[in-house]
C-alpha cells in the first residue's frame, strides 16, 4: 500500500518550498564537503585530472551515476527518501551537478584552477574531485543523522539537543573538545603532506581573506543550516559561545590552533610568521570541516 513518509517534507513543515529546497541544497553541499575535502588536498588526484582523456571523463561521469542512483533510492540529500526510480534519477542528476559545482568552487579557492587553466584540465580535475563530493551528497541525509526511517532536522535534532541540555555538562567545553577532535581527525592526515606548502605558495593576502570567509561559511552551513542531527537543539543551547555565529567563530579559532599544533608536530611550522599564517589558514579549511563534523557527531 502506498503511503507518504510523515517527514518534514523538503526542509520542514513550517518552511516554504523555496526555503526547504535551499536547505536541501545546503545539506547536499555540506555532505559533499564532509566527504570530499580530504581528497582535495591530494596532488596525485590533481595530476590524474590533468592527464585525463575525454573518454575517461565520460566514463567517470557515467559510472558515477550508478552509485548515486543506488544511494538516492535509499538515502539521498533530501528530507524524504527517494523510492521511485524517476525521483532517485532526478536527485542523482542534482547530486552530480552540485558535486561538480562545489568541487570546482573549492579547487578555485585552493587556486588549483585559475582563469589560465586549460578547459581540459578544468574538466579533468573537477570530475575526479567531484566523485567523493557526489558520494557525500548521496549519503547526506543519513550522514551524521542516525537513522534511515527518521526525519531530518526537526525530529532527531530536537531530541539530541534536549539530551545535551538535560545532561548538564558544559556545552561550551563539549563543543570545543569535539571541534578539536574532529579537526585533528581530518587535518592529521593532511598536515604532513606537501600539498599544504604547495597551495600556500599560490596564496595572496586577498585570497587568504576569501579563504577565511569561505571556511567560516562552510562551517556554519554544516552545523546550523544543513539540518543534520542536533541542529535545532544546538540553536537552543545556553552558554557564552552557543550563539551560532559565536560558536562558528570560536570553533574556527580552535581549528586554526589545531592546524598550528599539527604543523609544529610535523616540523612544518618553522617559518616566518606570514608564511606560517598562510599555511595555518590553508590547513584550517579541512580542519574546520572536520571540527564541524566533530560537533555534530560527538
Amino acid at each position: 500500500m502506498d503511503h507518504v513518509l510523515a517527514s518534514p517534507a523538503r526542509g520542514g513543515p513550517d518552511r516554504g518550498p523555496w526555503a526547504g529546497e535551499l536547505i536541501g541544497v545546503v545539506r547536499a553541499v555540506a555532505g559533499g564537503l564532509l566527504f570530499g575535502v580530504p581528497l582535495l588536498f591530494t596532488m596525485e588526484v590533481w595530476w590524474t585530472g590533468t592527464r585525463t582523456s575525454p573518454t575517461q571523463m565520460v566514463a567517470v561521469l557515467s559510472l558515477l551515476f550508478i552509485p548515486l542512483l543506488v544511494l538516492n533510492r535509499t538515502e539521498g540529500f533530501r528530507g524524504q527518501r527517494d523510492v521511485r526510480l524517476v525521483d532517485a534519477a532526478a536527485d542523482s542528476i542534482e547530486a552530480m551537478a552540485i558535486g561538480i559545482v562545489v568541487a570546482a568552487v573549492v579547487l578555485v579557492l585552493l587556486r588549483e584552477l585559475t582563469l589560465d587553466t586549460p578547459v581540459g584540465v578544468w574538466l579533468g580535475k573537477v570530475l575526479y574531485e567531484a566523485v567523493p563530493f557526489c558520494l557525500g551528497i548521496g549519503v547526506a541525509r543519513h550522514f551524521l543523522h542516525g537513522g534511515r526511517t527518521g526525519d531530518d532536522d526537526d525530529g532527531d535534532g530536537d531530541g539530541a539537543g534536549r539530551q545535551r541540555i538535560q545532561s548538564g555538562y558544559s556545552e561550551d567545553l563539549a563543543d570545543l573538545g569535539a571541534t578539536t577532535i574532529g579537526a585533528a581527525f581530518i587535518a592529521l592526515a593532511i598536515a604532513p603532506t606537501d600539498e599544504i606548502p604547495m597551495i600556500s605558495a599560490t596564496m595572496t593576502p586577498a585570497w587568504l581573506l576569501v579563504m577565511v570567509a569561505a571556511t567560516l561559511l562552510f562551517s556554519y552551513a554544516i552545523v546550523f543550516v544543513a539540518g543534520f542531527a542536533g541542529q535545532e537543539g544546538r540553536r537552543r543551547q545556553q552558554g557564552p559561545f552557543q550563539h551560532p555565529l559565536t560558536e562558528t567563530l570560536v570553533c574556527y579559532l580552535v581549528a586554526l590552533a589545531v592546524s598550528l599544533f599539527l604543523l609544529w608536530m610535523f616540523q612544518r611550522g618553522q617559518l616566518p610568521a606570514e608564511d606560517l599564517l598562510t599555511r595555518i589558514i590553508v590547513l584550517g579549511l579541512p580542519a574546520s570541516v572536520g571540527g564541524a563534523a566533530g560537533r555534530l557527531a560527538l
Partner: peptide
C-alpha cells in the same frame, strides 16, 4: 511501497 511528495516548483528549478 513508499512514495515521496510530488516535486515542488523549487525542486523543478533545482533540477
Amino acid at each position: 511501497m513508499v512514495r515521496r511528495d510530488p516535486r515542488t516548483g523549487a525542486e523543478w528549478v533545482t533540477l
